[in-house]
Design a protein around this nucleic acid. Sequence first.
RNA 1: GCCGAAGUGGUGAAAUUGGCAGACACACAGGACUUAAAAUCCUGCGGGCGUUAAAACCCAUACCGGUUCAAGUCCGGUCUUCGGCACCA
Length: 821
Amino acid sequence: MTITAYSNATDVKWQRRWEETKLYAFNEANIGRKHYLLEMFSYPSGKNLHIGHWWNYSLSDSYGRLKRMQGYEVFHPPGFDAFGLPAENFAIKSGIHPEESTKDNIARMGGQFLTMGTTYDWGHLVVTCEPEYYRWSQWLFLRLFERGLAYRKEAPVNWCPSCMTVLANEQVVDGRCERCEGLTAQKRMTQWFFRITEYADELLNGLAVLDWPEKTKKIQENWIGRTLGCEVDFPIEADRVTAYTTRVDTLMGVTYVVLAPEHPMVDALTLSGHRDAVRDYQAQAGRRSEMDRISSAKEKSGVFTGSYAAHPMTGRRLPIWVADYVLASHGTGAVMAVPAHDLSDHAFALRYGLPIVPVIGSPLGPGQSLPYCEDGVLFGGTGHDGLTSGEARIRITAELEASGLGRAARKYRLRDWLVSRQRYWGTPIPIVHCEGCGHVPVPEGELPLRLPHDVEFLPNGRSPLAACEPFVSAPCPRCGRPAKRETDTLDTFVCSSWYFLRFLDNRDMTKAFDSDRINKLMPVDKYVGGIEHAAMHLLYARFITKALRDMGFLRFDEPFASLVHQGFILDADGRKMSKRSGAVSPDGIVKAHGADVFRLYLGFGFSFTDGGFWNDDGIKAVERFVRRVCRAVDCYVGSISRDTDGDSPEDLYDGQAPADMGLERLRHDTIKQVTEDIDGFRFNTAIARIMELLNGIARHQARPERDRSQEGSAVRDMVLLLAPLAPHLAEELWCALGNGYSVHNQEWPAYDPNILVREMAELAVQVNGTLRGVIMVPTNADDASIREAALGDPKVIQAIGGREVRKAIVVKGRLINFVLL
RNA sequence: GCCGAAGUGGUGAAAUUGGCAGACACACAGGACUUAAAAUCCUGCGGGCGUUAAAACCCAUACCGGUUCAAGUCCGGUCUUCGGCACCA
């Protein structure tokens, strides 16, 4: 007989075979039953693959393998998000060119990915820093430019002084740079933006249909931040100031108007006697952004402009102030101040002695202190007395609309996406700036606009490409006169906002993707990645998809139909396992225990969506499990009996049914559970079920008399169920069972629901809600006979103790509960 | 401040729609095999109170209350942790 064993050598053997036979190549002929599985692609960092990579990619791969065996044509491509700051920073330190280091990293990480034994089809590899890819990022940029969705404007931007580049709002965390954690500053610069706000409503409404974690949807919802309110005009001589409010019910309580320091009307409204003070204040506000922005307990400050606006209803004179607690970027950049009913306005009014006029009271009665910021009931003889806030908002909006001094409006927190970066290692923006013609797109035929190789990329606050004369100088594509190229590069999130469209046609040099085929392949059926991208990548990708759809390139609305987030594996200090805590090396684990022991440990030891603390002990347990599996197979193949002492143990799984049905039922039950569990990314319970099946098989094998047919089915299906989770081991065992290559081409085992239906069922018997006994009853027994059977149980009789049973509640297949008086 | 998620044995964790809390493992303890160790196998393993040994009983899902025949699960409140947003009008 053969002794089946598993080790790292097994991995290597089968990985070679898979490669030679192109086992996992995507067959587009079967696209009709496609399943597009994608993990957020990884960044080719300078370090080795870490536990976190294995955690994410190997388990997701197990899901894909299930789908494959279930008959889906799984499209599971690998990729690298290869542009970006780390490679550039590494180059600055080491002098090694980003192109070289990135290439090396990809080669090394690619090799390490192979040791995982994934189903990746490497023929569809996408690497974003290659001209074959970024050429199409440039194509995308030009399409957005044509549609007016890419535009340039001067705007206050987030500037990271240490990275010497601008950052998108999404990349600023608590006023600090997401990458280097240094404080960011505000700076006015002319930059490229993508008009994502045009899609704000659809991005928000579209969330409803997505099979995404609610938490993630909530994050996007907050990030988009839609409010429904009202724009109110406050006339000033020939003009008017427009303020946005969600509380137009408080309109009668307005006692002044405030403009943001950057509001375009500030100069015009500032009277001569106030000019110096306002100018000083504006300058001061512009300088302050760093520390003040992150301190929440900030003093309100401001200056009076000298001008007055008229209240749209009463005509009362309202002083116009400038204050930096009003943000230029939100609403209209102007606020109608209601000190009685708003926290900030209240503090401001107190400080500067402005009047405070309450007009809303609590519906519970008087006596509340100011500011009262809840909804309530209007009072004060203002013409709307007695209305609730909700009613008043509708009424007052209508009145303002009638008088032409207001209108219902909606506003968003979402800002347009700032995409230019003053970096070298990114996609060059294909635009030429011509004095005569303005911003002129680089003609299609000249793409890719290549990133020049020899560039000084030390950070100096300007784009490195600006110092590269041969790159900068270019004739204007329109008029032919000398002009200058755009020297900023694109945010790497632009690369990742459409990469899922490129895999299928990764070698097509004539277009970014083939619309017909991508419409068949998309959407991604299961997308797996970290939640940290909830407000960035996942939002950008949705936006780009919708934009391309509106241009006629795509016929679907959402890129990622179903989304799963993995949790984090933490080190002893509670930090994310990553390149920084490199103490535990996947390579070492793979060598010592084999890839499948590693995969099974990751799958069994944690809940996929929760993650947890890394712990070596679990490895041993899984290794033992693998040995027991091998032994069970050997035992079956060699017909050797299990060595046990004494009598064979009872078949614990099912003492009631004919003894030899036990294993069969266990097999079907396990198939059902494992299928559902892997499908739902519950790898821990899936593996636990297989352990139970193994325990059942082992018990059966310990019997003096074995049912060869049942045992054979159970062993065979155990191997098939293991195939997604331990792909190398399963090949080995499949082979040991005398089957042909490959286990991964087998049909996923099916279960027979009829076998799961039992003739007898165990029923819990409760008395007053406390468990008192367990009875066996026929599954189809009616309530009366269940009751009778339960009342016959000695323990139950004792618990009832002769008292009167008021009623009995029967839950079919579960329990019966006797309620006593 | 606002919004959201979570809190279960010594440990990792399980638990359809409210229906036998702790599956499956780890660790630990005892036993078998062995000259011995490793490996393997068997038994026990939430707490309390019991008992020669059992049985029985009581308490247990962060805490306090509620709904229900029945609550880890639903409702109200409190605490803690983690995430998102935050002068957003």
